[in-house]
Design a protein around this nucleic acid. Structure first.
Lengths: 183, 183
DNA sequence: TTGCACATGTAAAATGTTACATGATTAT
DNA sequence: ATAATCATGTAACATTTTACATGTGCAA
């Protein structure tokens, strides 16, 4: 998979400029796919050249003009084809796990420093969970989803919430383990 | 962070060849950091040139010679310095979440195809969980860890187990949501 | 004799990161 | 005036992925 597909989904949900996409990749979509604005502009250019998306110029008073991108029929076909492909195994990059195993090869002071850092990292994840929960209350207040799109967005958000809760519980386990090391 | 640090941790736990490392990155370390043998050989070369690791030639009867890499004192210092750095936020790449949100933009047949694929993906994760649990019974049978290294390896494994259990529960949620779409 | 495990690499293409670059409006 | 937000890009560099490349020994 590539960034292209995440952009197609985002533009189908809501057409927008590269700048707006970059912000979505910082917020909602960033939950499950990250990208910087530099990447996004480059890929938007390529997708436009390939005819997957098309831009309309939007003149704005008081602000720079922007290009509002929308998905074309060929772009939509690219997405539906991709949806039928196998889901690839996730490429895991869990830096903290590497550090925790690495903690066996540092001194006591280093282990304490890691413990402090894990506590800070835990606070970050607590904030993310709070943000997800607030978003859930705001966007999905009822028990019955409004439509398919809402139902699917909600289940993805529930995945994010479940992930953060799991991480917080594991970080508590890590903190207890670091505190319990021989010294 | 980079692959270098994961390799340093792995070689400190047990010196070995590039080939052996590639296998560890398919198994135990692959739980939290993935790498192919091509990446590993290239990075080993650079780390050797930088003096972080050193190789001894191991002549083997009946098999190709191999180079057993171990971490040098400078390499160990690189690791301890890195352990003191901030843990970077994870770069998330959750392809399935993109597909689930994308399912709002395909037809019923496409949604059913995704459902089938999610079920297959779920079976993969069930197998991973079973492997982790078997590894836990094998490597950590007692209640009290043998030493620091074992305690830290065990808490990382518990993280993998917690992750897989969370994913399985979420995939059930996804399956129920896909089945419940309007049609 | 076919395939698998062991063992190590190179090359090209795609992707991703970091730094640089510009310029307007709005709020403090 | 100063910073933040909106808006779009280029350039250089690093990393990752995919394909190619080679060769031995052992077991079925």
């Amino acid at each position: 998979m590539a960034l292209e597909h995440a952009i197609l989904v985002s533009l189908l949900e809501q057409p927008g400029s590269g700048y707006e996409l970059a912000h979505r990749f910082d917020r909602s979509i960033g939950r499950f796919w990250t990208a910087t604005h530099q990447q996004i502009y480059r890929v938007l250019g390529r997708m436009g050249a390939d005819g997957w998306i098309t831009a309309e110029q939007v003149d704005q008073r008081g602000r720079p003009d922007k290009r509002r991108w929308s998905v074309t029929d060929p772009g939509r076909a690219v997405l539906t084809d991709w949806l039928r492909e196998e889901v690839q195994p996730e490429a895991v990059r869990h830096e903290l796990a590497v550090k925790v195993r690495g903690a066996a090869f540092t001194d006591r002071a280093g282990q304490v420093a890691l413990l402090v850092e894990v506590a800070r990292y835990r606070a970050d994840h607590e904030a993310v969970l709070a943000r997800y929960l607030a978003g859930e209350r705001r966007d999905f207040p009822g028990t019955v989803p409004a439509d398919d799109r809402a139902a699917l967005q909600h289940v993805v958000l529930r995945g994010g919430i479940a992930y953060e809760r799991m991480v917080l519980a594991w970080l508590d386990d890590v903190l207890a383990t670091l505190r319990g090391l021989d010294h």
